[in-house]
Amino acid sequence: MSPPDDRSAEGGGDLNRPGQTKGPVMEGYNFAYLDEATKRMLRRTILKAVAIPGHQIPFGAREMPLPYGWGTGGIQVTAAILGPSDTLKVIDQGADDTTNAVSIRRFFTRVAGVATTERTAEATIIQTRHRIPEQALREDQVIVYQVPQPEPLSRLEPRRAETKRLHSLADYGLMHVRLYEDIARYGHIAKAYDYPVMVNGRYLMAPSPIPAFDNPKMDRMPALQLFGAGREKRIYAVPPYTEVRSLDFEDHPFRPIRAPHACALCGSRESYLDEVITDDRGGRLFVCSDTDYCSGRVALREAAE
């Protein structure tokens, strides 16, 4: 990936926000931790995944220096596509400053010496756990999702050989049975995250546990979307401008769910909100889950005052 044009203007200034940082690179590691042969294998897998949108491609996942469930799949995909001139952003449930995001960002700073950022607009590669940034992504960006369970049918059909056959025959009635059951029981489709989508009208895909709120952002997104599942050893992809449709019924259309509040910090009524419990007497606060989006809006407001 090449850096965006506006990046060269950055570098110094703006002390209010944590901009790009470069740390010392650790000796003795190949660039971006993985050896070149592994990265080639990963890139071949990624190319295949891009060629068949939404189809899960198996790959030989390596042991990574973090436990399964912490983003071993995403980190390998990122390592395979990372170049020295890239700027990396890592988010965990929208936040740049939580453990998972901080440790993965520091990992790549140490083993690849790449620039990192917390600003969505400045990043060329965004590795994410369970969110898509609020700010629309561009063609020159890549978003890498960490995926715990790549098989959307796993809860419905435990046999891998059988789900593979269902995918090859595009036999997805089973998933609709699940949605039917939700409506029959709860009156609406109760799946709020990892909401199943059809990619390019062919493959049923698990969008990783992003909130259903983020599903519409995947549809015809200009950025390349890559999905890595380390424990399950699968990579899949959605190429830029590909149709991604959330499953639904004609009389129960898909609707993104959002807490009906404004962000307590920036006042946004459009962004996805986290509920924060503030005390043990029922006090609660709703704040943007995307910290970069929220702080950007707060900074704008302060500048205007």
């Binding site: 009635g173 609709h176 639904d248 019924f249 004609e250 009389d251």
Partner: peptide, 8 residues
């Protein structure tokens, strides 16, 4: 649903 019915 397997043969394409999508109206609940």
């Amino acid at each position: 649903m397997a043969i394409g019915a999508r109206h609940y």
